[in-house]
Design a binder for these strands. Structure first.
Lengths: 233, 233
DNA sequence: CATATCAAGTCATCTAATCACTCGTGGCGA
DNA sequence: TCGCCACGAGTGATTAGATGACTTGATATG
């Protein structure tokens, strides 16, 4: 069974700190307790506490001033940790991850069909050629090639924010994504569907590209749902 | 005069780590040297190094996997530390951010209409009531209330991954988002459109909810585009 | 061929100090 | 009285080495 990522002590600490700031009625600029007091209150040592604090500092939630204290950041709304937080989502969320991709990626395929240049299309082709080479190779390499296709398609859409979102989804949820591929386990079908998407984009048929990308992801999701209910012996 | 922050050892370390990733020819997914080796190379102790690593982890530059190693994150290109760092707010990026939201949020509104419970709807209503109170108040508070509506709607869709995506978009690009609101500058219209979306969700009319959310965001985008071309003096 | 076991490599955390910086306070001299 | 400055209590920054927990690939076993 795939344990994705353990919740480390320091992960939990980060959340407890956020909780402390939120429920403690602290406002931007307020000073928080000292590191000594915090480490005692949370029953961890200084270095461990500091790791949690550094994460909060990196996202702007707090500010650490040498010799002075720890202060609540100006942007109180920023009390979310994008990366470590997302990674803690696990397990049954395979389906939710696919659900998210079903919402986001098809429109991207349509956009890509509308604006991809010849050179970009050639690059996308090479990605698939590369994937074909791994059809009988190692799982890891095939997985990489498949993910590269989705990332590349997202990039062709020409919206950096959306590209970032897809990229981040596939990276942050890399473990889940890998598990999905393992359960899906139909290399040929994956490849064929990718090819169909590429052809639609090459033909600059936005509607077809969108529909094929959606069908592709729905396909995968359907298989995963079945496999989860009736695990193959 | 308050010198803001003096460069601490760990600050410098963070930058040296970034430098190592960039100039070391590392690509996303590559494994970096072990903590032990890194701490020796930089001549600091493990805890100090870890603080720097945690910051990089929080911004997505790297990923730390217990027992496995430290890996280069996906967005290797835009690695910035948020301390005194302000994000660039270029016009093109504002439009791309809105473009992303136009792709993602309408389907979420549809999902929300399909599954929101009475209690959740009541909560969403309260958010709008709260926003109404700020229609003549401070910019910051109104902005918060407006963003809360979008976040809350995303949450109602019931897909944690998608909710996380929207939340993350509004948080990470908080500065751009605030600028958008400032340029848009039509409080009444914003509020009315939010209200229309809420009504569609309450009526469990998924199609209408989706369409109104899309219209709302397209509205905003159109205004931003015009304002960017013909800035009001 | 599949499964179970094992060991090396790696991150996570602990402990107990010392060093470096900030800022208010009070002494000192003018 | 006023202003300058030295000082110290409080706080964050860093150190050192050791141990625990986890992952992963190799090996052994059925």
């Amino acid at each position: 069974m795939s344990e994705v990522t353990r919740p480390s002590l320091s992960d939990a600490l980060t959340e407890r700190m956020l909780e402390l700031i939120r429920t403690g009625g602290h406002r931007p600029g307020d000073r928080l307790p000292s590191t000594r007091e915090l480490s005692q209150r949370f029953a961890v040592t200084t270095p461990t506490l500091r790791e949690a604090l550094r994460r909060l500092e990196a996202t702007g939630a707090i500010e650490m001033r040498h010799g002075s204290g720890i202060y609540v950041g100006a942007d109180i709304e920023r009390l979310v940790l994008p990366n470590p937080n997302m990674r803690e989502m696990r397990g049954a969320q395979l389906l939710e991850l696919l659900g998210a991709r079903i919402v986001i990626e098809p429109p991207l395929a349509a956009l890509a069909a509308g604006r991809a240049t010849g050179e970009e299309l050639a690059a996308l082709q090479r990605v698939l050629v590369d994937a074909a080479r791994h059809l009988r190779g190692q799982d890891a390499e095939l997985h990489d090639a498949n993910m590269t296709f989705h990332r590349a398609t997202a990039r062709l859409a020409g919206n950096r924010v959306l590209h970032e979102v897809v990229d981040s989804l596939l990276t942050v949820h890399g473990a889940e994504q890998r598990e999905i591929l393992q359960i899906f386990d139909d290399r040929r079908r994956d490849y064929d569907e990718h090819l169909a998407i590429l052809e639609a984009i090459e033909a600059r048929d936005a509607a077809a590209a969108e529909e094929r990308m959606r069908a592709h992801l729905v396909d995968v999701k359907t298989v995963i749902e079945q496999r989860l209910q009736h695990p193959p012996k």
